[in-house]
Amino acid sequence: MPAPNRIDLAHHYFVNDLPGSTIPASRLCDVLDKLQEGRPLTANGLNYLRQLGLAALGQLARGEIAYETFRPLAKTEQAKREQTAEAERHAKHESMLAKAAEQKAREAEYWAQQEAARLARESDPKYIAKMKNRALRDRYGIDIFIEQAHFPRLMNILRRFDDGNRLSDDDVLWLTTEGQGYYSDLLQAAFHEREGEFYASEYRRTSDPWNAVNASGHFRKCKQARKADDLLTSIPSERQKPPKLRSAIATTHGGVMRDLKRLDDALSLGNQAHALTPNDFRPCTLLGAVNFELGHYDIARDWYTKAIERGATERTIDYDLRGIFLRADPARREEIKAFLLREDPVRYRWVNNLQGKMPRSTGE
């Protein structure tokens, strides 16, 4: 007759509810094997059965009762064990539910306190003002630390500007000197756009071409060259009689063409402007920049020299060269670097360590 498997053996002795009853090499499994094979248990084995509360199985192992007598006794013991285990599982489950409810209540209380604190904080005038200030700074990209002495003036400027007002000359002077660290790219772009719209509106109101020139200069600085192009193109030729005005229009329009990558048109306009006002440095600066972008470095150098002779500063020209250098592709950068260092390794040493930050437009 084949030997029963582990599960059958555990059911046979009514211990299938106990851990280890079907696991080979476990202590209980070893006891069952001995009983099935008719081998006596040691004192330790009998003591182990007492520890498990298997009184009927202990009696069977000692030969005190037959299996038929053992069977109902063992079934009763197993039923009690299962009832106890079920009660313990239920109690454990109830305990877990109670702990979960307590945790949920604590969390609800915590979040209620947080919400109450938030509502109290958000109704505090100081907090409201702080959040408004932060939103205003974020809107204009000012994410750096603001010195306490600078804070009132900066926030006053931002509030007035955000209300739709133009920046005053004093505001711009402060932002470009003492407060230059707060004159973010976003704020500059917004300033130039507003100024451009103002002068464009003045041009439409007065038909004065100088307003169109001023508007176009601002539109260029906020990367709206096409708007500047449309405005300058709209100026009737009969209003462009004075040479200085015609030169200013041509120079500004040449800068717009440069922004739009129409470099041949920019050269043509620059030459027109220089012919009209040969002693003005602005057309020379434009022609220097355009020739440099075309790779005509020697010609560009000569135009820049003429610009300096007519009043342009090296600083302005070098700033424009930085912009050209940064916008160039890697191969062109190497060309520019080599040329500038040959020209003046001290003046142009910045090409060796200039970081890839996009420059601001110089307006030429």
Rank of each mutant, 00 (worst) to 15 (best):
H218M: 01
R246L: 12
E122G: 02
K104T: 04
N47V: 00
A74R: 05
S268Y: 09
A228T: 01
S26K: 01
G20L: 08
F339D: 00
N291D: 02
C284G: 03
E314H: 15
Q103F: 03
L267N: 07
L35Y: 00
L286S: 04
A338M: 06
A189G: 10
R220H: 03
R342I: 00
R360S: 08
N44I: 14
K241D: 02
T84Y: 07
A328C: 06
V290C: 06
A25S: 06
I128N: 01
L158I: 11
K244S: 12
K130C: 05
S237Q: 13
I146K: 06
R246T: 04
Q59N: 06
R282V: 12
S168G: 12
F325M: 14
P125V: 01
D124P: 00
M257C: 06
I144T: 13
V256P: 09
R333A: 07
L294E: 10
I249N: 02
A112F: 10
H296V: 04
E238C: 02
E197Q: 13
N279D: 14
L294V: 00
L286N: 04
D302W: 13
Q272L: 15
G311Y: 03
P72F: 03
K132T: 15
A55D: 03
V256H: 04
C29P: 09
N44P: 00
R315C: 08
H218D: 09
A98M: 06
Q103H: 08
L263K: 03
S268C: 07
Y140F: 15
A300Q: 01
K92C: 00
L245K: 07
W350R: 11
V15F: 04
L173A: 12
R139Y: 15
M96C: 05
T84V: 12
D169W: 12
E68C: 03
P330C: 09
D30S: 14
T252N: 04
A87H: 15
N16E: 14
C222E: 05
M257H: 05
D230R: 00
T252G: 03
V290G: 05
